[in-house]
Simulated scan of single mutants.
Amino acid sequence: MYNLATKTLQLLLSLINGRLKVVNKKILPRNEPFIVVCTHKSWIDVVCLGIALYPIPIHFMAKKELFNKNFIKHLLIKLNAFPVDRSNPGPSVLKIPLQLLKKKKIVGIFPSGTRSTEEKALKNGAIHIASRASVPIIPAVYVGPHTIKDLLGRKRRTIILGDAIHVPKISKDKEAVTETINKVISKAFEDLKIDKK
């Protein structure tokens, strides 16, 4: 269902808004798992990231509240999404993404939450997952419309991918290492936005 949904949405958005521009797709790791972290303001950037990496499927981390209704829950699962408690992330948050990465799958995390504390927690989660799984983090920035009105206005959609960020094994000084990589991710987001300009 993931492939069908991606192709359908790609066609629909192309008809409405034109073709999605993807920058630096060639730098993605080949035949190895990774975590992609992307800026996030609306459902459009989630869809565009999926289209940008296609045919590579992404397993998206999504807030658990979206899984409260059975129909939506089953739909999200078929679309490769898995739930996480953003307000109270604990050790169990690492279990599913680590299992996916072990199976050489790609995990997608959108750390730009609605609250600064949520954003930091999600970035830290991506860092700890990458460290434990020994996989790189690929930063991605979405630039374009965030509303249906802007889509109809033909404002161009772009996904810009950045160089891999390699996270060391975290044993000592966890806070210091996490803070350092957090800054690297934030700087990557800012640099990619500047590159677009």
Rank of each mutant, 00 (worst) to 15 (best):
His74Asp: 08
His74Cys: 03
Leu75Cys: 12
Leu75Thr: 08
Leu76Gln: 06
Lys78Ala: 02
Lys78Arg: 12
Leu79Asp: 05
Leu79Lys: 13
Ala81His: 07
Phe82Cys: 11
Pro83His: 00
Pro83Thr: 02
Pro83Leu: 08
Val84Trp: 11
Val84Asn: 09
Ser87Gly: 12
Ser87Ile: 10
Gly90His: 05
Gly90Glu: 10
Pro91Asn: 00
Ser92Glu: 04
Leu94Pro: 01
Lys95Leu: 14
Ile96Thr: 15
Ile96Leu: 14
Ile96Lys: 15
Leu98Thr: 04
Gln99Leu: 14
Gln99Thr: 05
Gln99Glu: 15
Leu101Met: 01
Lys102Gly: 04
Lys102Ala: 07
Lys103Pro: 07
Lys103Val: 05
Lys103Gln: 07
Lys103Met: 12
Lys103Glu: 10
Lys104Leu: 01
Lys105Pro: 02
Lys105Ile: 06
Ile106Gly: 10
Ser112Lys: 02
Ser112Thr: 13
Ser112Ile: 02
Gly113Gln: 14
Thr114Gly: 09
Thr114Cys: 07
Arg115Ala: 05
Arg115Met: 11
Arg115Asn: 00
Ser116Val: 12
Glu119Tyr: 03
Glu119Arg: 02
Lys120Glu: 08
Lys120Ile: 10
Ala121Ser: 03
Ala121Lys: 14
Ala121Asn: 13
Ala121Val: 00
Ala121Glu: 02
Leu122Met: 15
Leu122Asp: 07
Lys123Trp: 05
Lys123Arg: 04
Asn124Val: 14
Asn124Asp: 15
Asn124Lys: 15
Gly125Glu: 00
Gly125Val: 13
Gly125Met: 15
Ile127Ala: 03
His128Trp: 11
His128Met: 15
His128Pro: 07
Ser131Arg: 10
Ser131Lys: 02
Ser131Tyr: 04
